[in-house]
Design a protein around this nucleic acid. Structure first.
Lengths: 178, 178
DNA sequence: TACGATATATATCGAACCGAAATATTACGA
DNA sequence: TCGTAATATTTCGGTTCGATATATATCGTA
C-alpha cells in the first residue's frame, strides 16, 4: 500500500482531478494516511502509463487545463488485489513526545510548556474532528473519525495524570544544577 | 527534528556506535520515533564532517572496525537549539485502518478478519510493552511507554464497541450483490 | 556435532515520500 | 481596494525507508 495505490482507491468513489484526490486524502483518510501533491501528481502519471487510470483533459477558461482521472477495469482489479495484501504495521511519529526524552537538557518551564501546548493541540484536533465527524455520511468515515477522537482523548487524560513524572525529574535536575 | 539531530540527542546519553544508536532508537524512542541503519550511518558521517561528533575507530579481532562516536561541545549546543524549535505535528499512518475505507470492495468476512487481526496485533504490542515498561529506569521512558499502552488500549476498546458500524455495511452491500 | 537462528557491525542502492516554491486566475470578505 | 483563500498542476531538493551485501561469533537444539 502506497500513495499510488491509494489514488486508485479514491478513484473507486468516482472520477477526480489530482487536486480533488488531495482533498479526498484530507477528508476521508487524513486520520490514517496523508499525501501531498508531490506524491499524488507523479503517481497519477505513472498510473496512466500503466493503464490503471484514464485521463481526459478539460479546458477551462483562463485556468490551467483540468485533468480528470477515471479508474479502468484493470485498475479496479489491481486495487482489489492490493487491498487483500497484509497491511504494513501502524506507524506513529511524534517530535513533541520525543523531545520529552531530553527534558533533562532543557529548563523545567520549557518541559511544562511543551506538555501544555501538546494537550492544547490535541484538544483543538478533537474539536475540529468532532464537527467534521457529524457531517460524515458513511459509517466507515464515522468509524475512523471516532477512532481519531478516542485516541487523542485517551492521550490527553494520560498526559494530565502522568505529567508529574516528567516534571518532577526536570525540577530535580534543575535544582541539582543550581 | 530529524534522524541526524536525534542521533546527536542519543549521544548526549553517552558514546555509542551506529549499531548501538539504532538500538537506542528502538529501546528509548521506538514509541515515538524510529530510524533505520540507512538513515543513521549517513547521518553520523555528516555529523562528523560538521564537527558535531568525533569518531574513534576501535579495531576488533576478526570483526569490522567499531566506530565509536562522541558528541562534541558544538554538537551539544546545536542539539539544545534544535530542541527549542517548535516540533512538527504528530503523524500517524495505518494501512490497516485505511483498508477499512474500502470495505465495500471486499467480502464481509475479510473486513471482520482485518479488525480481528488489528486488535490482536495491538494486544500483542501492549503485552510486549508492559514487560519492557517495568524495566525502564527513567521516568521519561516510563511516561512514553505508558502512553503507548494507553493509546492502544483505548483503540482496542473503541474498535470492539464500534466495529458493528463497518461490519453491518459490509454485510448489507454483500446481500445487495447477491 | 552440525545446523540454523540470532547478535554484532557497517555500508549502500533505489524507491518513496515530504515540504516548499513557482505559476496563474477567480472569488470573497474586510 | 487589498489581501487571502480556493482552484489546479508541476517540480526541486532533501529525507527516509526497505532491502541487500558482507563477515563473524555465539547460542540453542536436534
Amino acid at each position: 500500500m502506497n500513495v499510488k495505490t491509494l489514488c486508485l482507491g479514491i478513484l473507486t468513489f468516482g472520477d477526480a482531478t489530482g487536486y480533488e484526490i488531495k482533498k479526498a486524502f484530507q477528508d476521508k483518510l487524513s486520520q490514517m494516511y496523508d499525501a501531498g501533491y508531490s506524491s499524488i501528481y507523479p503517481a497519477l502519471n505513472q498510473l496512466t502509463k500503466e493503464g490503471f487510470v484514464s485521463c481526459r483533459q478539460e479546458a477551462q477558461n483562463k485556468r490551467p487545463d483540468k485533468k480528470v482521472y477515471s479508474i479502468t477495469t484493470e485498475g479496479r482489479l489491481f486495487f482489489i488485489e492490493e487491498l487483500k495484501k497484509k497491511p504494513a504495521e501502524d506507524k506513529f511519529r511524534s517530535e513533541a513526545l520525543t523531545t520529552l526524552m531530553f527534558a533533562h537538557l532543557l529548563p523545567a518551564r520549557t518541559t511544562s510548556d511543551l506538555i501544555d501546548s501538546l494537550i492544547a493541540s490535541y484538544e483543538q484536533y478533537i474539536q475540529d474532528l468532532s464537527t467534521d465527524c457529524d457531517m460524515k455520511q458513511s459509517h466507515s468515515e464515522k468509524f475512523l473519525c471516532g477512532m481519531g477522537i478516542t485516541i487523542r482523548k485517551a492521550a490527553i487524560t494520560y498526559m494530565q495524570e502522568n505529567r508529574h513524572l516528567i516534571e518532577a525529574d526536570a525540577l530535580l535536575s534543575q535544582q541539582a544544577a543550581e
